[in-house]
């Protein structure tokens, strides 16, 4: 059951629209093709959020189950990917909230921002990434959603505004406030990284 690769953005939209409509009507093959198009994106968002493949897969599964359930109500009034990102962001923020992050700033003192393949460096990077995830998880919900879309889904301000149905200015102010909080939470590692950079 191969999929025909659409060539232009217009064709992509038309093909995606067809898949969405058929999926909404209960066509599982159409939904399979829709999932095939977007599962990497959702997995990346989830993995960046939780840092574990199995947990990321669980989240991605949950996202697509929600999408499948909600598809009959989808009205094509916004790009499917924006809608998908929103569902993914909600699932991700729920998942990271449930993980109850424990952020130890003391442990960040010696963390490198970048490193080689040395096992110690790898372990340190993992700890650093966990610290970043935990710091994001500890944000207030509306900030967390916005940051999740920027950091985990790599969306632009404009795309975040569309995905969350909020004005661009609100995206800016939320990210501003959220990053100030993150900066404070990750102060230790940022100072350490700054020293490393200036050394």
């Amino acid at each position: 059951m191969g999929t025909t690769e659409p060539e232009s953005p217009g064709e992509i939209d038309a093909e995606e629209r067809r898949l969405i409509d058929r999926s909404a009507a209960g066509d599982q093959e159409a939904f399979r093709q829709l999932v095939l198009r977007h599962y990497r994106l959702v997995l990346n968002v989830a993995f960046r959020a939780v840092g574990e493949v199995s947990a990321a897969e669980d989240i991605a599964q949950e996202v697509f189950v929600k999408v499948h359930r909600a598809l009959p109500g989808y009205r094509h009034d916004k790009p499917f990917t924006h809608w998908l990102h929103r569902v993914a962001a909600n699932a991700v923020t729920d998942a990271v909230r449930k993980k109850k992050p424990v952020l130890s700033l003391d442990a960040l003192d010696t963390l490198p921002l970048a490193g080689g393949a040395d096992p110690q460096d790898v372990a340190a990077r993992h700890d650093l990434q966990r610290a970043v995830r935990d710091a994001i998880a500890a944000l207030p919900p509306h900030y967390r959603d916005t940051v999740a879309l920027q950091v985990f889904a790599e969306l632009s301000y404009d795309e975040i505004a569309h995905a969350l149905d909020i004005p661009l200015g609100t995206v800016m102010s939320r990210l501003n406030a959220a990053k100030r909080i993150l900066r404070e939470q990750l102060r230790a590692v940022l100072d350490n990284g700054d020293e490393a950079n200036t050394a």
């Binding site: 997995l43 650093l128 990434q129 970043v132 993150l182 900066r183």
Partner: peptide, 19 residues
């Protein structure tokens, strides 16, 4: 400088390995 460092930190989160 601190903001740029934070951004660097945030983009350090890798994408998912192939699934």
């Amino acid at each position: 400088k601190s903001v740029r460092l934070l951004n660097l930190l945030l983009v350090s989160l890798p994408p998912a390995p192939p699934v």
